[in-house]
Design a protein around this nucleic acid. Structure first.
Lengths: 218, 218, 218, 218
DNA sequence: GATGAATGAGCCTTCATTCAT
DNA sequence: AATGAATGAAGGCTCATTCAT
């Protein structure tokens, strides 16, 4: 009778888990965690509602799985994807743009986890380690390759790395996603900021009277 | 008739509305919007559950009222509270610290509205106007009072104002509240950043690559 | 349009609670505790499902309320309802029949509580106090009014009271309700038993080795 | 081929069925029928959940199998295990104690079947035949061996047999298991009762209202 | 045949909303 | 106008049963 494709009952746990995580990520991001029903998630993942409980121990467990799955992906290597720029100024700009793109890529995940982090301190820690410390460290390492930077006191190198991370997060996520600013406009603003920071850094022997004659801006 | 303490048997409508808005703000911030029940709100505001519907048209209406109530308060005048600093460098630092404190003061409100803004575009706009454009404008006005700044191209002045606003938001709200970074540590980092940005700006004839061997004080 | 009686939303907590207790007693007895749904209970009590949770804290709380409500009723006074018989033999028979009728009256409650007592020790205690100790004590008091009984050692008087209680329970509840024996047949059997016990007691100086030379078997 | 320890990789069907019946008996008794999950049963029996359906047609069928399995065992011969006592009085006591022990042995089964019998008339019949008629008949046969009994009218012999059965059930199962009375205390009480019944029977010309002007001593 | 992963109906419970008082 | 008792829709979760392997 039924000539339509009847999705047969298959056994492929890994694929189903992934489908659930994906479906849940999207729904949590667009509807919010509590407003999303397990029924909707199951429907979008095209599997049975009960699996959410069997595999993840419930809706909350599914959220946890989303976080963990993302954390393990998180190591997307900056170094393997973007080549150090010729000058520090260019590097800062390039790193800010890279960060903006990463934040945009992760916007769905961030949309899920930030509201939860406001309710659950332990999730805040996860973001701190994942999206703050880890990323900032990678940025700092890149910056250290530049003479101007290795000359900086540790605190300032650090501040610079945080500048890149913060700018990426704000103009890659908060502005375009939370506050609905136009993406390109946000990016442009970030680039301006990066340039200002970079240009000045290059022209000035930071905090050290040591005059270093490289600095040839532009 | 009775001119003596008439302390009305029941509070008046305005007082009740305010009590509900305050109670809801706190609960929404600490439990989340959905997880907060109207019964809890009514209990904390010490009035009847039904009033939430009579006055605000329901839980969602109460949220809207929170936003509106805040927007009208929002104009807390920067100019009336902090005196312009002597140098641009100092001013930038001072403004960043001011912003950090404002974001911290508003953390409850931000905790409520940011998760909602992720679900409701129109709220994003409210934040944009309230917490971004308005504040940035005020900051830009302050900066314009400095010679170094009036020399800057419009885009860079703007970028600088955004730098202040963004840094305030990140290190006054996101870092300490969302990500649970230590407040003082976050502030210190922001101050470092502000100093770097300020120092460099002061030492360099902006946007002109003109090589100027000055500064490097300490 | 709707000319039928629309049960208006009334406010009468006591009546609703009683309706829920009654409905639940019946359904638990005929379907079992877990097989009875809160929906069915609410439907039969003609009120909203949510009240079961508001009033009793859930299905389990409703069961507890049934028990407590019954325990408080339990004091149905034997002495005020049946007149002591002329002879001990008659009294025993009369008491057994009284007990049978009480057990039959309580069959619904017993049907609910006995299965639960098998799962929950604390309920067993409730029955012990309610349906065993209390009743047996009342019976013992009645028996003590007879000369033959006050002559009995305490243990035997006690045993006799338990005989009455046990016989009432078995032939008033277990046999007709659990095991579906014909009620009249069960009662008749109990009466025979009561007569045997009573008759013999009357003819024999209990527990005293006093040799009694009757014994003439047939 | 291989005549050495073939210890079949998997147990045979009969063994699996038995394991399931045993596991289910225990779990139904301690958790109740509904509260026991098929998964638990399968786990305890160390076989697959699906077998419950293949072998017994589901959880309900497993319950039926428990009953049937017990019924077929039920004929545990009284005559082959306990020797007739010297006197009727002793015999009654001995039979009551025997019954008490049987009921205690069967407490798990009874705990399963009594709650179900309250919901399912047909199970009541099973108990009636198994635990009432059959046992009572065996008891009656034993009693008939005594002169005092063969002298009794049929109805009274019958009542006496029921007395033994009922007392065994009450003090071997209901009191210690349902109502958590101390086992030894319950047994002692039953013994007292048995003695009273026995002693009197032996001393009195049954069923004849033979006027005996004794008693009322003190 | 045996297994246990997958299904999905149905449960208890929560809670925004309504409305009699 | 204010109250909070009553409502009932909808949610997360359980678990007997089915069926691909």
């Amino acid at each position: 009778m039924n000539l339509l494709v009847v999705k047969s009952r298959t056994r492929n746990r890994a694929a189903r888990e992934q489908a659930l995580v994906t479906a849940a990520s999207q729904l949590f991001a667009s509807l919010g965690f509590e407003a999303t029903t397990t029924r909707e998630i199951a429907a979008r993942a095209a599997c049975a509602e009960g699996l959410i409980h069997r595999y993840f121990g419930g809706k909350a467990g599914l959220l946890l799985a989303i976080v963990q799955s993302r954390v393990s992906h998180e190591v997307m290597a900056l170094n393997q994807r973007v080549w150090p720029a010729a000058t520090l100024e260019e590097e800062i700009q390039q790193l800010v743009e890279w960060e903006i793109d990463r934040m945009w890529d992760d916007r769905e995940f961030l949309s899920v986890i930030i509201p939860r982090a406001l309710l659950d301190p332990s999730l805040g820690d996860v973001i701190h380690r994942t999206c703050v410390i880890q990323r900032t460290k990678a940025i700092a390492e890149r910056l250290q390759g530049f003479a101007e930077c290795s000359a900086l006191p540790k605190a300032e190198l650090d501040a610079l790395a945080h500048f890149v991370a913060v700018t990426g997060f704000m103009f890659g996520f908060i502005r375009p996603v939370v506050v609905r600013q136009d993406r390109n406009q946000a990016r442009e603003m970030a680039v301006n900021l990066a340039k200002m920071m970079g240009r000045n850094l290059c022209s000035v022997p930071a905090s050290q009277p040591t005059y270093s004659p490289q600095a040839s801006v532009r």
